[in-house]
Design a protein around this nucleic acid. Structure first.
Lengths: 206, 206
DNA sequence: TAGATTGTTAATCGATTAACAATC
DNA sequence: TAGATTGTTAATCGATTAACAATC
């Protein structure tokens, strides 16, 4: 596990491996080859082997990868072997929908705080979480040790929310608002914009 | 506009350009340079010029790009100059949330049909759309001319829904379920999985 | 042992960036 | 005209794929 810079493409594939490995584990499969994985995930087997080899020698020649062991390793790499606390701002339709993934995320990640700027929303309960006003953000996030923030507010407010997250010392942001946000270089931002996704799909229609 | 194969990366950036151009248009800005765009969108100006040049000469040397004209052109390229009908399967929390984007999508794309396998959901009304049972899919989709399908069902059912979409002659699918689906090569699939997105973010925590 | 499959190097492929002549 | 900015070629950078010795 050298301090080599791992490309973003590699990091993005790890959760996909993990997802399928979990499925295999549930089906009591004990071993899997890069060939099998590639077939199932529409990826080149050599790429999968190379991705994993960046982090260590996890497989056995002639056999493949032990599923339990590989799951454990990928979880370590992704830092999912600890509990990671997540906060969400924007208790609209999308925000509510995401809160319901808490069950799916299980141990690793959990939305532990929910904020909304509209006073009317304050106090509402969504999936066991009480909607809090924005001015509680700093204290609540510090207390709960939140490290990742999710933005599900309208585009016009996304930058403000990002600023507030940054002021609270957030380390990474997942932004669902359809706008590019500016943050300091040490804060990682990923985008999850449904509308651009749909629009790029349209290109491929005949 | 030669029949050169355009890379996926380019196609994915076009909606992002479009989004910001629309914002500029609303603010009555008339012209923009690749420099300005690059700064705002965190992209290299040369890349933006190159992306656009794949499709034609849209700019003016010494001036930049006329915003109205460029919007029109990008909309043509993405085939957003027509109405594109979209169907959604899975009227859960996420599905409902997405239905509310109809207003945002405005002219170009519209969710026009909503299906769910659970009989209990049938007949429910979400954002002016009635939830229909799966056995109505073929006839409704043919009648409405649906070309793109969205999947927001649990992972275990996603492949079945994809199969049904394919049987209805769907051309492209946006899959929110956390699983890789198999479709014929002429059907385009994009993924929008919130959980893998969050998990890859975790990697970048210190 | 024979067959299978890894880890890794080398080859290929593709995407991004720099540079600059053309020109508004 | 002088300054700005495009479109495009060439250079760079990075990611994917092929190939194969090592070995279970």
């Amino acid at each position: 596990m050298k301090t080599q810079k791992i490309s973003e493409a590699v990091v993005r594939r790890l959760p996909i491996y993990l997802r399928y490995l979990n499925e295999l584990q549930m089906n009591n499969v004990s071993t899997v080859s890069s060939q099998d994985l590639g077939q199932k995930l529409d990826l080149n087997p050599a790429q999968i082997r190379k991705d994993l080899a960046y982090f260590g020698e996890f497989g056995k020649k002639g056999i493949g990868y032990d599923i339990n062991y590989l799951i454990e390793k990928i979880r370590q790499i992704l830092k999912l072997d600890r509990h990671i606390q997540v906060a969400l701002v924007g208790a609209g339709n999308l925000g509510r929908a995401l809160c319901n993934y808490n069950t799916y995320l299980r141990n690793d990640m959990k939305i532990v705080a929910l904020f909304d700027a509209m006073p009317a929303k304050t106090g509402e309960v969504i999936n066991n979480l009480v909607v809090l006003p924005m001015d509680k953000m700093k204290s609540v996030m510090t207390e709960l040790g939140v490290r990742i923030g999710i933005i599900t507010v309208p585009a016009a407010e996304a930058q403000n929310v990002a600023n507030e997250f940054v002021a609270c010392g957030i380390e990474a942001i997942l932004n669902f608002a359809p706008v590019i946000i500016k943050v300091p270089p040490d804060v990682r931002v990923h985008y999850a914009d449904f509308t651009t996704e749909l629009q790029s799909l349209a290109y491929y229609l005949d």
